[in-house]
Each structure stands twice: as structure tokens, then as C-alpha cells.
């Protein structure tokens, strides 16, 4: 059974059409990389799937009532906003919001999930620190922990590795990989095709106002398609150290 079904989706911003005819099904255990050039509609597609944006077509997630949707999918916007200097523990605890009935307090079960998320992201030492005082990489981990505390089968993250150093980028992708192996479905949008090729089980490529390709990284990242969608040439090979993708030249 699919975790998310999208059919024939079309989004317009004013008179401009962002994309049309986008459809796919996501299953448990997949780490899906959403790739495409700037303006292809990666963020738009994720927000439309979540029902945060008006769209034509069908998304099984957007069709759910708000409260159910929040128990099915967690969303990490690109902005990584932390408005107030609350403790890391409090911030992670916000992920439990959809699960706590109105006017009720957290149960021990909620606390266990918060602890588990903090442990998972190795944030024990930061627990009582103010979240706004942490470094960018630490904040990114706290926000992933927040999404984990929401305890949903599906997690959508918009450019979660943008602005992180290489070590943090790799470790973040490995965390997503592990979460997928544990049975969740993860969708991440990213620009780094090298990391996408190494860590994602599947790529969905947007370009030229449509779904350009959908499949495993090795099937999708062909020279023609890369040239057509991204306008670059690239080196992509399976090496003894895993798949290596390196962008080379601008072709168009």
C-alpha cells in the first residue's frame, strides 16, 4: 500500500503554471530525493502534496482532514525558523502538538517519544540549552528531532542539507537513510545530485514544467537527461566506493 499517492497534479501561481501532470506513488522504506533546477517547483510540489497550497489534481495527503494529515506527515520547511529562545526539549516537544487533544497535557507516552527523538539525533547534551543559541548544524538536527517526535510514517523535508558543512550533510543524509530503512518514507528536496545519487533509493526529477523522470538514481541520471533538465554535463559512474556523481560544465 502506498504512503502517498499523487495524481495529475497541476499548480499555477497567478497566470504562470509551475508544473502539470505530476503523479507518483510513494511506499514505505523509500528515501526519495526530489531534484530539479531552481524554479522547477520542488518546494511547491511538497507544499501542494501537504495541502498547504492550492492545486488541481489529487494528493492523498491533502485529501485528509488537517488533524489526520498532521498525524500522517511531518513537514520541515526550508526556513528552519525558531522564533523564540525555547529549550531544545520544548522545541522537540512541539512535534507532539497534533497528537495532544485540545486542552490536554502531554502524557508519559508523549514524553517517551520526545526522549526517543532527542536520543536518535544525539541531542542529550543540548536538552536544556536554548535552541536559538545553537549552531546552524545543531539547529538542523533539533528540527529533525522535532519532526521525528511528530512520529509520522511520512517525512517531507525542504532542502534539509542546504547550508550545512560536508560532514553534517553526509550525516544528515545517513540519518534519513536509516529512518527509511526502519520503514518510514522520507522525501527530501536537494540540489546536491552527488549526495542524492549516493543516499536516495529513488529520485523524482522536476523540470520544464513537468515530471522529468522518476526512478532509481542510476536509471535517471543519464547524460542526456542531465543536459536537458539541468543544462550541464556530468561524470556519473558506479565506482568501488559507491556511485559518484560530479557536475562538470554548463552546456546550455
Amino acid at each position: 500500500m502506498s504512503v502517498l499517492t499523487v495524481e495529475n497534479m497541476k499548480v499555477s501561481r497567478g497566470p504562470c503554471e509551475v508544473f502539470r501532470n505530476v503523479g507518483f506513488k510513494l511506499y514505505a522504506g523509500e528515501l526519495v530525493g526530489l531534484v530539479g533546477p531552481n524554479g522547477a517547483g520542488k518546494t511547491t510540489l511538497m507544499r501542494a502534496c501537504l495541502g498547504l497550497l492550492k492545486s488541481k489534481g489529487y494528493s492523498s495527503l491533502a485529501a485528509l482532514p488537517e488533524s489526520e494529515r498532521a498525524k500522517t506527515a511531518a513537514w520541515m520547511p526550508q526556513s528552519r525558523e525558531i522564533a523564540w529562545p525555547v529549550t531544545v526539549e520544548t522545541l522537540v516537544g512541539l512535534g507532539r502538538t497534533p497528537h495532544i487533544p485540545l486542552g490536554q497535557k502531554m502524557t508519559p507516552a508523549d514524553r517517551i517519544l520526545i526522549d526517543r527523538a532527542i536520543d536518535y539525533m544525539e541531542l542529550q547534551t543540548f536538552r536544556r540549552r536554548s535552541a536559538t543559541r545553537l549552531s546552524g548544524g545543531e539547529q538542523a538536527r533539533v528540527l529533525i528531532a522535532r519532526a521525528l517526535a511528530q512520529d509520522t510514517p511520512l517525512l517531507l523535508a525542504d532542502e534539509p542539507i542546504a547550508g550545512l558543512d560536508p560532514a553534517h550533510q553526509i550525516s544528515t543524509m545517513k540519518i534519513f537513510s536509516r529512518l527509511a530503512q526502519e520503514g518510514r518514507t522520507i522525501v527530501v528536496s536537494l540540489h546536491d545530485l552527488g549526495l542524492a545519487a549516493r543516499h536516495c533509493t529513488r529520485l523524482i526529477m522536476l523540470g520544464q514544467g513537468r515530471l522529468a523522470a522518476d526512478g532509481s538514481p542510476s536509471d535517471i541520471l543519464t547524460a542526456e537527461r542531465i543536459a536537458q533538465v539541468f543544462g550541464i554535463s556530468a561524470f556519473f559512474e558506479k565506482t568501488s566506493k559507491g556511485p559518484v556523481f560530479q557536475a562538470l560544465e554548463v552546456t546550455s
Binding site: 498532521a70 502538538t97 485540545l102 511528530q150
Partner: peptide, 20 residues
């Protein structure tokens, strides 16, 4: 209270957590 707490993470994240 509940909505304002969730808004700590921004409007989009709060909306995705079921806050109207």
C-alpha cells in the same frame, strides 16, 4: 496558546501540524 507555541516553528510548519 497551542497555536502560538506551534508558530514558533513558522507558519508553514505550524499549518502542517494541523494548526488552522
Amino acid at each position: 496558546g497551542r497555536g502560538l507555541d506551534a508558530l514558533t516553528l513558522g507558519e508553514d510548519a505550524a499549518a502542517a501540524m494541523g494548526i488552522r
